[in-house]
Design a protein around this nucleic acid. Structure first.
Lengths: 195, 195, 195, 195
DNA sequence: AATGAATGAGACTTCATTCAT
DNA sequence: AATGAATGAAGTCTCATTCAT
């Protein structure tokens, strides 16, 4: 059996995903975790801290997956492919969570900057590591010579949006072929060359 | 002088941008609009309806700008360039609003699907028109032969993310050169070709 | 009809007198005032502020009565007699209030110094005026030459305690003769002189 | 080493003195006593009972000191002097305690009369013994012929208030001379005689 | 005797909404 | 059309108390 703290975190992720941050009460979450209201406060100072803890745990998981891919000794393009694959898998399993808690975080009264600082570091960290991978790719001659930051953001955007659109629309089409379509566009560029 | 309804909408946009949806009270908004609390209810049935009205007005504005670009008789790539330019301009002027109300909409207790349906149509509409433009480009041989939906999402993602990152980080660099960098990557692809 | 603010103050004095500060809920007080819970918060920022407002209003009343007596152009001893009379009257009408809110103020979590500063001024003010009266009495040769501060405190203590004891014990005896007994002891001293 | 029960009582006196009754949690007190929360409940049925135990122990101490003085075979006036001395000493050492727990007992939800009955006996007992001393003094011709109850209360009040005022104001003056000033006023009376 | 994790009743406070003026 | 005083449902958080170990 998991320890109480993790039970509460899991319940919070589930409940807030379903009802949103402001739509979920501490009572809801506690009940879902099978504990009493007060128990949540033994482990988390406040509702917002509980929420932040859920988010941090999630970001830590995502971060570690990204790092694994980025550190591996494979060509740059394979790494990008790997990221797409991971992101597709993660989205398939966490569709509602992403929309409720990540793509659309609640506007909590707490100074938003405070909240963001807690993630920004983690996100920035990942982004920076990806930029380094691209710089290496540029040096090796695998990637075009272009501002690596912009490259990183373009690639991330080009990955995230189609995957999210795919999952939102719950198309019955083949999600795996999506990876190749994205890679195709990214590698060749959108312009039709030659005859 | 603007009519009362628009005064309230403007105030709502300003206040909610600053304090977030749950951080703003109807009192706050009414005061900022220079009217009494009760007056807001003469024009909007509820707080959530006021919020949705703000959003709809904004989406209508964005939609009309996109349509203008998309309808114009210029080459596909020029249209994409135009979209980037517009998006950059919009973000420069609406940075905080985008982060508060669009990029991070509040998780209101109201069934989220209800909310999304109100925008989904507008967003879908735009997306669909953009897809048509790309299909036309593919037919003409200007754009590579690839799933037009994926193409549309990749391009949107590749535009939105770097612009947002640029604005978030408030880099002092030249934001206008950003457009050319994005276009460069999108048109050539990320892979270094030739020699 | 009294205005709402005063209705709430009166209800608060009554309810807190009966149940104590921590024993009274805002709901209790509001109901006793014939208003809704939220209404109290339109007039007082918090429960503790409401409590402090009750106390201040009371101290202001007592202060003004004391001032009236002290300012009047009568001999010092008559002033002391007047104070005893006032105190007896006040205690007869406010017995429970004095015990609940003044003689035994609640130990609120708020820094007690903060609370006391709100009264201390008023109390100090009265005490100081009384000291001045005694100084005048000493100069005139009506009062014995002794530290006027100690004199003031001795006299106040010698008045307050017997009156409170009398009221606590609800003796059926003649409360008015109490004044003369106190005056007798104070003026003659406790030692039997002469033969 | 003291037994656990007394450790808890001591901690309770210290903590409640500092934070007040409602500001102190059982956790606070237990921690200060170096025991676990549950342990307190092995020795005291409830928080209020713990509080009452602290008070009773204190009153017992004060009572025994008073009795010692009152029983001793010295003249009445010497006894009064002794009481002043004791009270000054006690106040110097227990200033904060007196203000937190005695001068301003918490308004606990429990029926206040219940609480008071626990002390009333002890206080009444002391008061009564003092009254007897005065009656004896009156019979012997040392004390003026006056209602002994009023005499007792006047004297107590005339002692307690100046000492408390002295301690509150933390005057740097000579606290020992205070005793003689009080005695002077009490014995001679406040009226300037002769000449 | 001792522990401390868990409980859950209960209180303060907020604020969207109403409605008499 | 406009006001703003009043409402009261609802939520967060605290903490005395219990009890299995």
């Amino acid at each position: 059996m998991k320890d109480t703290r993790n039970q509460i975190l899991d319940a919070a992720k589930r409940v807030i995903t379903q009802k949103g941050f402001h739509g979920s009460t501490m009572e809801d979450i506690a009940k879902a975790a099978g504990v009493a209201k007060g128990t949540s406060y033994l482990y988390f100072k406040s509702k917002i801290e509980l929420y932040l803890a859920v988010m941090e745990r999630e970001f830590d998981y995502i971060t570690s997956c990204f790092e694994e891919i980025i550190k591996s000794r494979i060509p740059v393009l394979k790494k990008i492919e790997g990221i797409i694959s991971f992101f597709i898998e993660y989205m398939k399993e966490n569709r509602d969570f992403v929309f409720s808690l990540m793509y659309e975080p609640p506007l909590i009264k707490m100074n938003k900057d405070v909240i963001h600082k807690r993630y920004r570091n983690k996100i920035d960290n990942i982004r920076h590591k990806f930029i380094e991978v691209l710089e290496e790719g540029i040096r090796r001659g695998d990637i075009i010579k272009e501002d690596p930051e912009v490259l990183a953001d373009v690639i991330f955007g080009a990955i995230v949006r189609p995957v999210i659109q795919f999952v939102i629309r719950k198309k019955t089409g083949d999600i795996d072929s999506l990876k190749f379509k994205i890679m195709n566009i990214l590698t060749k560029g959108i312009v039709r060359k030659g005859g």
